[in-house]
Simulated assay, not measured.
Amino acid sequence: MDRHLISRIAHRDHPIAAPLSDESVRRLLDRALRGGTAERVLDLGCGEGAWLLRALAAHPQLRAVGVDLDAHALNLARQGAERLGVARRIGLHHVDAKEFAAKEEFDAVLCVGATHAFGGLLPTLAAVRPHLAPGGLALVGEGYWQAEPDRAALDIFGDGLADLHATVDHALADGWTPVYGHTSTQEELDDYEWSWTGSLADWALDHAAEPSGGEALRIAAEHRAEWLGGYRPFFGFVTLVLRRTA
Rank of each mutant, 00 (worst) to 15 (best):
Q79E: 14
A101G: 13
V86T: 03
L125N: 00
L69R: 08
V65A: 13
C111D: 00
R63E: 11
E104S: 12
A114Q: 04
F100V: 05
V109G: 06
F118H: 05
V86F: 05
G91L: 15
A102T: 07
H93P: 02
P60A: 12
L121E: 02
R129C: 07
V86A: 01
Q79G: 13
H93S: 07
R88Q: 15
A117Q: 12
E82Q: 13
V67S: 02
L74W: 02
V95P: 09
K98C: 06
A81H: 04
A64F: 02
A108Q: 04
L121I: 12
E105C: 13
E99H: 14
V112D: 02
P60M: 06
A73Q: 04
V65I: 10
L74S: 00
P60Y: 12
A71Y: 10
R78H: 13
V112P: 00
R63H: 14
R78W: 11
A77I: 11
T115R: 06
A71D: 09
R78Q: 10
E104Q: 12
L69T: 06
G113H: 01
L122N: 07
C111R: 01
L122E: 06
A87W: 08
H116I: 11
G66Y: 01
R78I: 07
R88T: 14
R89F: 09
G91D: 13
D107I: 08
L125P: 00
L69V: 12
F100S: 04
R83G: 13
A64T: 00
L121A: 05
P123K: 11
A71V: 11
A81Y: 04
A102Y: 02
F100M: 08
H72I: 11
C111L: 12
A114G: 11
A126K: 12
G91I: 12
A73M: 08
G113W: 00
I90V: 15
L92N: 03
A108V: 05
E82H: 10
A101S: 14
V128R: 03
R129Y: 07
F100W: 12
A77V: 09
A87T: 07
A127K: 03
R83Y: 15
Q79V: 13
Q79S: 13
N75A: 15
A102R: 07
V109P: 01
G119P: 04
A97F: 08
E105Q: 15
T124N: 05
A117V: 08
E99P: 08
H116N: 11
A102G: 10
C111Q: 03
H116D: 09
V109R: 01
K103C: 12
V65M: 05
A77T: 08
A97E: 05
A117K: 06
L76Y: 06
G120C: 06
L121G: 00
V109T: 06
K103A: 15
D68G: 03
V128I: 15
H116K: 13
A117L: 15
L74Y: 02
N75L: 14
A73K: 01
V109M: 09
R89Y: 06
L110P: 01
L110K: 07
A114E: 04
G80T: 07
E105W: 14
G66R: 03
A64W: 00
D70A: 10
V128W: 04
A108L: 09
H116M: 14
A102L: 06
R129T: 07
L121Y: 05
A114M: 09
G120W: 02
L74V: 05
